[in-house]
Design a protein around this nucleic acid. Structure first.
Lengths: 353, 353
DNA sequence: TTGTACGCGTTATCAA
DNA sequence: TTGATAACGCGTACAA
């Protein structure tokens, strides 16, 4: 049925060891035999069996990628970055999407280890305690992205969620906003969502603004969630003048709710997103949001993981990339005519890369 | 280092065969020994080696998923559907994104086969001739989604691209539009893009409308492409009154260009998308577009593939699902005030499931 | 109910 | 430069 190196060996009249050599170290086999072997492979349609190879080498050239959800394009962009380096360096990607469940996360970790991935990339810190224990116990190389960790011994490629969230809030305050709401992820969500919330709180505190928990709405991450959250905020006796959303998707929902209620986004109510999706440049109004280095994180983390696997590099490597607030049209001064800003301006943020 | 069934066997005082049995057919091993073995596994932290298992079983419980691009949410949604069934039925997913390159597609096919996936799902018909040959030669089970194929012997879960595109165009014509443009994918793109173009052409022809090639703009699939394509159309001496876009992303770009040029979407120029992304419900104006069963295709194709792998089903299975035009606010009569339609209406289309 | 022994397809060690 | 042969970790006849 399927042809093996032994078949090739027999047909050429050499040993299977020689056939294996033309695959792995062609230099050390005589050109004449090498050519004969190659030709035989061609003729018989030989296909390498990576399963068998992996078993002896103890190496599969595949990495596991664990992401929160595939349907948010921002994670897709990171995935693309990882996929690109992986392909370039000869690795395949096993994909696992947790839908924000830590149990599912750990399921993937152990499943991936059964399949003997050479390493794992996490978008967001592993949330299940068992995940980290497991990784360390089995010395599985892994890289975390999207979140700065305190541990000095874990590899990450991240940006500072708290710092940029604080910067966004500072910006809104500087425009005169005082009632600033936040539409965040689920209350028991990711640590990076928590960090963003903390950044928001710190900014308010630093400016002696009253901390009003009812201005914080916890939701999931769909457009519909954004709409509902915003509607709820608009039903309050005193509505906020600005809303900081946990991501762009929520912001789109929020903007829709603002319009439906008869307000004008950026004039009556300011909306800020987080992620800077491609489509956020053409929303109406164009969305002021936080640009994060999604593709670069994906690419760098893939590169780093493979370097760890191939032992080109010593642990730990920790990269903190820049993120930045991109000012467009969905934000204005409170209760003043909408700013007719020209070009989008960029405010740099985050420590240097 | 890593503990094997032999280690467990030795520690319990049974043979490795017995240990293997408690993993694969626990019923046939005496409860007492079974418990002892299980306990030993727990203690020693035994982890199954799927590589070795796969080698003997000739089965890996992983499937390959080949998609055009991960960054368009519509493919992500299909991926999610596949991922969900896969997880449920104990399979993992190797992901390959071709970025619309057929060479890359074939690379993934052969790479996946080296890794001995049990089957492959294609989003869109395999474009490289070698892909199909290869699959058939090695009798690799595979399922195609998103496109109806003529071959009677290939499994697919699809919808009728041509038929729905024709229906969209008919709809625009019925509103009075005569100069209808199409912003399509790359000229040498996918067959489904071609089918949509054909549907558009057929509709025009059926209504004796002049066929004007200059109203067809070929682009890639980014927001920016949509903007550029629309801008180009707006620079014509006679601009179109309606534009049918190859997907929602292009439509967002197109709408942005329309607004930038000072026209009103849905009043001056109608825009139709394709895909019905979540965010299309909250764009401004809300996008009239084609709803396609992305999640369902992903789920069904995963289910079908696994059924083929596990030989629960005989080839070939061919499903054609419904797609439908979702009428919202981005379309109106040509040169007439914008329709203030209430609820979105749905026009059913496509043969029954 | 359990053990023996071999095979899966490759790589790696050691000789030749 | 090449060949024998023993791993790698598991599944499975076949026998007991």
């Amino acid at each position: 049925m399927t042809v093996t190196i032994s078949d090739i060996a027999r047909s050429v009249g050499v040993s299977s060891a020689t056939v294996s050599r033309v695959l792995n170290s062609p230099q050390i086999v005589k050109e004449e035999t090498r050519i004969k072997v190659l030709r035989a492979m061609e003729e018989h349609g030989y296909i390498y069996n990576a399963l068998a190879g992996g078993l002896t080498r103890n190496k599969t050239a595949t990495i596991g990628l664990i992401i929160p959800t595939i349907t948010n394009p921002i994670f897709a962009i990171s995935t693309k970055g990882t996929q690109n380096v992986a392909k370039e360096r000869g690795y395949s990607i096993l994909l696992g999407s947790t839908e924000y469940s830590y149990d599912v996360e750990f399921d993937f970790v152990s499943l991936f280890y059964e399949k003997r991935v050479d390493g794992i990339i996490f978008m967001g810190a592993p949330g299940h305690i068992k995940s980290m224990e497991f990784l360390k116990k089995w010395k599985i190389p892994f890289v975390v992205t999207w979140e700065v960790l305190q541990e000095k011994d874990v590899n990450f490629v991240a940006f500072d969620n708290m710092q940029i969230a604080r910067q966004v809030t500072d910006y809104l305050i500087s425009l005169g906003h005082r009632r600033i709401a936040m539409i965040a992820g689920p209350p028991t969500g990711t640590t990076r969502a928590y960090q963003r919330l903390e950044g928001y709180r710190h900014a308010l505190a630093a400016h002696d603004l009253p901390h009003n928990e009812s201005l914080i709405v916890h939701k999931n991450y769909t457009v519909e969630d954004g709409k509902e959250a915003m509607s709820r905020l608009l039903r309050k006796k005193e509505i906020p003048t600005a809303v900081f959303c946990g991501n762009d998707i929520l912001a789109f929902g929020a903007m829709a709710a603002v319009k439906e209620a008869g307000y004008i986004v950026g004039t009556d109510i300011s909306v800020v997103g987080f992620d800077d999706l491609d489509i956020s440049r053409v929303s109406d109004p164009q969305l002021t949001t936080v640009h994060i280095p999604a593709y670069r994180m994906g690419k760098m983390s893939g590169d780093l993981l493979i370097s760890l696997i191939e032992e080109e590099v010593q642990q730990p490597q920790q990269y903190i990339l820049d993120s930045s607030l991109v000012i467009r049209k969905s934000v204005g001064n409170p209760s003043l005519p909408r700013r007719e800003a020209g070009e989008a301006r960029i405010m740099e943020g985050g420590p240097g890369a």
